[in-house]
Design a protein around this nucleic acid. Structure first.
Length: 726
DNA sequence: TATGATTCCATTTTT
DNA sequence: TGGAATCATA
């Protein structure tokens, strides 16, 4: 009757069946990490009879959580629903609500995203009459978030110099204002729980008593509070299974600390260790290139990914004149791949930073190639979407200042800057919410009659909406949009942007309706939480299109074909101009490069430009050291080199674009290029794994080099690297 | 209050 | 260079 895990290798199986106590799994890229976690959960439920609701599996993204749940639904039908599967933030939010009374929180707290946090901070700074240049909200937010990641309250905030002392004060006031609005920021969701654990052992014990088994995915990315949270949960039973890959840790700048996984064994001396080193994703050649780069890092858990997959096509390196040349060469290569056999969905273009996408987008548009850009502005960050949600929040809890301030004059209702400032001042003076100040002003005879009337109208609007709040999020939204004239205003504007805004708003309303239909107990609070914790990655569309995104955004994904663009010094590895090279940062860049390479299943293309436009001038760029860290024989160099020597690099005269006098073109080949595709020539007999033996009837120079071959069953255009001489 | 002018900023951004 | 945010002015 016992559930039998299937199709697992020895290491995977030992992780799945690990009996009790701490376990750390080092899971290389494409080594079946998710499989191990899901099978382990299934094993616990089915073979060890752990009640599903006593198992907690934590991820970093909603997408990972959803996938895990879906897979578990198949493995242990009917039981997956009661498992605790979610992101750190979602799980902690749920626990905070469940124990809100004990912790001293309102059950229906709202969650502030980064933008909300920043506007709250701006208000605090203005209230304290601080110079916003000295104390930039962005920087202060960073310091406060860092403090929360370290688990430090305002009292524990280290402040030796005057600047830090002021920041500490800001932090304290900020916390007060957040509490007054019953709002929690992202950092709070974990920090407040850990803080409560520390202050009140009964809370800690109550939460701890919920779970028998805890599993954490992407453990290399946990920060200090997250570690403290997990540790606190497992202190008694010690059934903690963490899975991760120190080589894929790319969020150091957000507080992720690789030591959590590297030093897991010192924290838990009795921990079992499993290493998953067999890769099921990429070809030998891709893996060799990726390994070669990351192996240069000094601080890492020793391991080497290997695969039984075939050798595959050579990793292609493309040298380009400038960024536009890079874009057109890459796009050209993509078109050929699509003509040959790939779909657009098979292809991804990765870059170090968003700004690199522009040239590619222009080029893709020029050739009418559908593409999608992942990242950039989140859907729920759009102004109109935030406006609507702010209305809902303000109706839900008028004392929540950030939302109230956002909508107080939107659409314009004559409550101008001065009036708002006066409200904020009196709220700060009386230590009340802005809403309370608003109500007071409505009854204040000393106010000018016209402003007073306007304030009263607004207060009544809120009041009326509040009475209607029970109709549910979608109906309430429609009411808001109609009675405020928000939609009407957009309709009147009658512009393309206005139309897309209307569309976005309607999409939000539609998502509310969907939520209401699906949720067991739909509530405004829960909907708002879902929306703030949700990112865009989940809204991917089904169209056939080429995917463009940063390497960061690509973590956890895989594509048959991957292009990595801009492999140049200062771009990738990224370096801020004038700053000294930090070895730790360089290692992180190298890991990032490793992540980029290992996204590819079959084909990997790496491009760099000799000249790149940066702001308004042009800069000569040396190709990335990462390219040179790949052994020479592993890279097949192609591409433009029409200029000879660049900034001291060896001129690639060894890679001539020569056409023999008789007009026969042949495929570009580089020095030390011992790949099979080199030297494929017109008339040659070649072998293809699927189509058999054929004869080359045409050769097209390009990226990738492509040839036309007549096979027994017809003529085909083939990428030359798939061919071997017959 | 709305608009144009000016200034500032530019790495990555799981939640 | 380009965009967003803030400022200045009618």
């Amino acid at each position: 009757m016992s559930w039998v895990p299937q199709g697992l290798n020895r290491e995977q199986l030992s992780a799945v069946e690990h009996a009790a106590g701490p376990l750390v799994v080092f899971a290389g890229a494409g080594s079946g990490k998710t499989r191990v976690i899901t099978h382990r959960v299934a094993h616990l439920v089915e073979s060890r009879a752990v009640p599903p609701w006593r198992i907690l599996a934590v991820t970093f993204t909603n997408k990972a959580a959803r996938e895990m749940r879906e897979r578990l639904e198949k493995l242990v039908p009917g039981q997956a629903r009661s498992l605790w599967v979610g992101t750190f933030h979602a799980v902690c939010a749920r626990l905070l609500r469940a124990h809100a009374d004990q912790i001293g929180l309102r059950k229906d707290f709202v969650i502030y995203d980064d933008a909300d946090q920043k506007s709250m901070l701006t208000r605090v700074l203005r209230g304290m009459e601080l110079d916003e240049r000295m104390f930039a909200p962005k920087q202060v937010a960073f310091l406060i978030n860092a403090a929360k990641q370290e688990g430090r309250s305002p009292d524990e905030f280290e402040a030796r110099d005057p600047f830090s002392r002021t920041v500490r004060e800001i932090y304290a006031v900020y916390e007060e204002r957040m509490a007054a609005s019953s709002a929690l920021d992202f950092g709070d969701l974990i920090y407040r729980l850990v803080y409560a654990f520390r202050k009140d052992p009964t809370v800690r014990d109550a939460v701890r008593a919920r779970f028998d088994q805890v599993l954490v995915d992407e453990f290399q990315d946990v920060n200090h509070v997250q570690f403290a949270f997990v540790e606190a949960l497992c202190e008694q039973h010690r059934n903690l299974c963490v899975v991760g890959d120190d080589d894929q840790s790319i969020y150091r700048w957000r507080g992720a600390d690789r030591r959590n996984i590297l030093e897991f064994r010192s924290h838990f001396p009795d921990a079992s260790v499993v290493k998953l080193e067999q890769n099921y994703r990429s070809t030998q050649r891709i893996l060799r290139a990726a390994n070669a780069v990351v192996a240069r890092n000094l601080e890492r858990e020793p391991k080497r990914l290997w695969t039984e997959n075939e050798d595959g096509a050579a990793v292609t390196a493309i040298a380009c004149d400038d960024d536009r040349d890079e874009a057109s060469t890459v796009v050209q290569a993509m078109r050929m791949l699509i003509e040959a056999s790939y779909t657009k969905n098979d292809i991804a273009l990765l870059y170090r930073k968003h700004s690199q996408s522009r040239v590619f987008e222009e080029q893709l548009r020029r050739v009418n190639m559908p593409y999608r850009v992942i990242g950039g502005l989140r859907f729920y960050d759009r102004a109109e979407v935030k406006d609507l949600l702010a209305y809902l929040r303000a109706v839900h809890n008028p004392d929540e200042d950030v939302s109230l301030m956002r909508i107080i004059n939107k659409p314009a209702r004559g409550i101008g800057k001065t009036t708002v400032e006066r409200l904020v001042d009196s709220a700060a003076g009386a230590k009340t919410s802005v809403h309370a100040a608003l109500l007071a002003a409505c009854d204040d005879d000393s106010q000018p009659a016209t402003t007073r009337k306007k304030l009263q109208n607004f207060a009544q609007l809120l009041q009326r909406l509040r009475e209607r709040a029970a109709v549910g999020p979608s109906a309430l939204s429609r009411d808001v949009l109609d009675s405020t004239g928000y939609l009407a205003e957009l309709r009147e504007a009658d512009s393309v942007e206005a139309d897309s805004r209307i569309e976005n708003i309607l999409e939000v309303v539609a998502s509310m309706e969907q939520y209401e239909a699906e949720a067991s107990e739909p509530s405004l609070t829960e909907f708002l939480e879902l929306v703030t914790l949700e990112t865009d990655a989940d809204r991917a569309v089904a169209d056939d299109a080429i995917t463009l995104m940063t390497v960061h955004a690509a973590k956890g994904l895989e594509f048959p074909v991957v292009f990595v663009a801009g492999l140049e010094e200062e771009t990738f590895p990224h370096q801020r101009s004038g700053e000294e090279e930090d070895p730790e940062e360089l290692e992180e860049e190298r890991r990032l490069c490793y992540v980029a390479f290992t996204r590819a299943r079959e084909r990997l293309f790496l491009s760099h430009a000799h000249v790149r436009r940066v702001y308004n001038d042009v800069k000569i760029r040396r190709r990335s050291r990462f390219l040179d860290e790949v052994p020479k024989g592993e890279l097949h160099w192609v591409g433009a080199n029409r200029r000879g020597v660049h900034d001291g690099q060896p001129a690639r005269s060894t890679r001539p674009e020569v056409r023999p006098a008789n007009g026969t073109a042949y495929v570009d080949r580089s020095e030390a290029n011992d790949t099979l595709e080199a030297g494929i020539q017109l008339g040659m007999r070649v072998r293809h794994s699927k189509f058999g033996v054929g004869q080359v009837t045409a050769v097209a120079d390009g990226v990738p080099p492509r040839v036309t071959v007549v096979f027994p069953d017809g003529s085909r255009s083939i990428i030359s690297s798939y061919l071997t001489p017959a």
